[in-house]
Simulated scan of single mutants.
Amino acid sequence: MPRTRLIVAVLLLFAPLVAVAASPWHAEAYLVFLALPPTLGGFLLSPRMAWAGAGLTTAGMAVGVALSPWPVAGALVMAVACALVARGSRLGGILMGTTATTPLGLALVSPPTMSALGIEVGDPVTVTRVLAAAGFVALGGLWTALVLTVLARGLRTPEPRRESMVAARRYAAVLVPLMAVATFVCMQWFPDTHAWWLLLTVLVVLHPRYERIRSHARARVLGTVAGGFVAALLVAVVPEGRVLTLLGVLCGLVTAWANLARPYSQYSALLTLTIILLTSGTGDAFVTDLERVGLTVLGAVLVLAVVVPGRALLARREDGPAAG
C-alpha cells in the first residue's frame, strides 16, 4: 500500500505542470517546476517544512522580480538568502535552501516574461508581473506540499546530514560573498540573459564539506554537457515548442526520482535536460543550450578557484601551530 500511495503521489505532483504545459501558458511551465525541488527538499526534513519550502520559493520569486532593476539591492538580498542557506545546513536543510534560492537568482537576473500577458524581455517591473511569476511558482509549490502531506505522510525518508557549526561558518564565509558579487555582476552587466545559470552552478557545486566540492563540480559539468547534448538533439528533431515542453515534464518526473536515487552526475544531466526543454519556447533553444553549458563550466571553475587555494591556506594555518 505505501508503494501504491507513493506512485500516486509522484504522478499527482506533476499534474499542475502537465496542465500548464498543455495550455497556452506552456512557456511558463518551468516556473511551476522550480517549486518542486525545494518543496521536496523540505519534506525530507518534515511535512511541515514542505510548506516552508513552497513559501520560501514563492517569496524568492516575488522579491527577485521586484528587485530586478536594482543590482545592489539584489546582491544584498542574495547575501541574506545565502546566509540563511548556510545556517540551515546545520539542520540538514541544504537541499531545500539551495533549490529555494535558485528562483531568486533567476528572477533577479532574468525576470520571467509572459507573452500571454504582453510581458516581454526588458519590460518594466509591475505588480502584475510580480504576482504572475510568483503565482506559477506558488501553484507548483503549494500543490506539491499538499500532495506530499496527504499521500506521503509516514513515508520513511533518508536522515538529512547535519553540518557542524565550523563547517557551516566556513560554508557561509565562501557562499555569501561569492554569490553576492556574482549576483551583482550578472544583474549589472548581463540582465535578461541566462547568466543566472552561473548562480545556479555556484549554489549546487559549493558544499560545506570540502570533499564533496570537487566531485560536485566534475559531476555538474559532465552532467550539464550530457544533458545539453541530448537537449540539442531533441530541439533539432522536435521543432514544436509545446511538444518539447511536455517532454520536459516527463524528464522532470525522472529528475525528481534521480535526485533521491541516482548519482549526482545523472541528476545534473536530467535537470539540465528538463530545464532546457521547459524553457524551449523562450528563445533559441540551441543557443541557450550552449550558453548554459559554458556558464556551468565557468561557475564550477569559479568555485574551485576560490575554494581550493582557500582550503590550502587554511590547512597551512592549522598545521603551523601544530608544527611549532
Rank of each mutant, 00 (worst) to 15 (best):
L246V: 15
G93A: 15
P239I: 11
S46R: 10
G324Y: 07
W25M: 14
L45A: 13
F136K: 10
A182C: 06
P309H: 14
L253R: 01
T272L: 08
A145Y: 00
I119S: 05
V249R: 13
E159P: 06
P69D: 05
Y30P: 08
G299I: 03
V125D: 03
R292H: 05
L142S: 03
L234K: 13
R87A: 11
A86T: 07
L44D: 15
A116S: 13
T99D: 09
A182F: 01
F286A: 13
D123Q: 07
V238Y: 03
E240T: 08
G92L: 12
W257E: 01
V243N: 03
A258V: 00
T201L: 08
A323I: 00
W25V: 11
H207E: 13
A315F: 02
P111Q: 05
L151N: 11
W196A: 08
A312Q: 09
G97T: 08
G228A: 04
P160H: 04
G122H: 05
V72L: 13
I213L: 03
L11I: 03
G228P: 04
L44Y: 14
R311M: 06
D192Y: 09
D123Y: 09
V32I: 14
A9G: 09
P16N: 04
N259Y: 02
L108H: 01
L313R: 15
L40E: 09
Y267Q: 10
T279S: 15
V202Y: 01
V306K: 01
A15L: 15
L199M: 09
L304A: 00
L314R: 14
L295S: 05
T126A: 01
R242P: 11
A21Q: 12
A167G: 13
A15Y: 02
A323T: 04
A19Y: 14
L175D: 05
L40Y: 02
V77M: 06
A219P: 04
L246I: 15
A173D: 04
G141H: 01
A167W: 12
L246Q: 15
T201Q: 05
V18P: 10
L146F: 15
G105D: 04
M179I: 02
P16A: 13
D123A: 15
W196N: 11
T4E: 02
P208I: 04
V243Q: 11
A15W: 14
F190T: 05
E28W: 07
R153K: 02
P263H: 13
P71G: 02
V254C: 10
D319C: 00
A75Y: 00
A269C: 04
P112F: 00
G122W: 05
L34R: 06
L302H: 00
V32E: 11
G324S: 11
T282W: 02
G88A: 06
V63C: 04
R5H: 12
A182Q: 02
L244T: 08
T58N: 04
L151M: 14
P191W: 11
R156H: 14
S46V: 13
W257S: 03
L6P: 04
L260T: 14
G294M: 06
W257K: 00
A219M: 02
D289R: 07
A269K: 03
L142W: 11
A323R: 03
A231I: 03
G41H: 04
N259E: 09
G92F: 11
F14V: 13
S164T: 15
V204Q: 01
V238I: 15
P124C: 12
A138D: 07
P160R: 08
T272W: 12
L302K: 02
R209I: 08
Y210E: 10
W197R: 07
P24I: 04
S268T: 14
A258K: 01
E159T: 15
L273Q: 08
L260I: 12
